[in-house]
């Protein structure tokens, strides 16, 4: 059985997604909706990390329930940087790149959840299946959010 491997992988990819979202939030503090929503959505991935760590024990995985974190100094630098470059068009291009990355990372996490759900159904592990049912819809919403923000902002950023 290789479920443990997938759990290990998704624990990592959820952490990466959360970090990316926090990074996006801090880098685009002057884009207030991005700033607030990216932080909120990072919280969802943090919740997933805890759930994955908990269920992971049953599959022989010793995963950290606490989300990975970055240093506070870096956050402050990013936020300040955002304010300083907030009136320059280049910052907006960075935002498209960032949103694209959130979208692709979330897609990866979604694929991981898909695999886990399939495996859980195959061996009738309802607890694991329940975890995927709770978490995967959040991931899809994270993807749709990134996609919607890309749709909403790319015209202005690319043609201006």
């Amino acid at each position: 059985m290789k479920i443990g491997l997938v759990l290990h992988e998704i624990h990592h990819s959820e952490n990466e997604l959360a970090k990316k979202l926090l990074h996006v939030s801090e880098r685009h503090k002057v884009d207030h909706e991005i700033y607030h929503l990216a932080r909120d959505l990072a919280g969802w991935s943090h919740r997933h990390v805890r759930e994955i760590a908990e269920i992971g024990q049953r599959y022989g995985q010793d995963l950290n329930p606490e989300p990975d974190s970055e240093s506070g100094v870096l956050h402050d630098v990013l936020e300040k940087g955002s304010e300083l470059i907030g009136r320059r068009a280049k910052a907006e291009l960075l935002m498209l790149i960032d949103l694209r990355e959130v979208y692709t990372k979330a897609s990866g996490v979604s694929a991981d959840w898909e695999m886990l759900a399939q495996a859980a159904q195959g061996i009738k592990h309802t607890d694991l299946l329940d975890v995927t049912k709770r978490c995967h819809p959040d991931t899809l919403r994270q993807m749709r959010w990134a996609n919607a923000k890309l749709k909403e902002t790319s015209t202005q950023i690319l043609v201006s």
Binding site: H32, E33, G86, R87, A89, E92, Q156, I157
Partner: peptide, 19 residues
């Protein structure tokens, strides 16, 4: 009609970034 209409807070952001 390629995206939702731009709401005023977003318009203020576009004024801020100079677009």
């Amino acid at each position: 009609h390629y995206s939702p209409p731009t709401h005023v807070m977003q318009m203020m952001r576009y004024v801020e970034d100079g677009s």
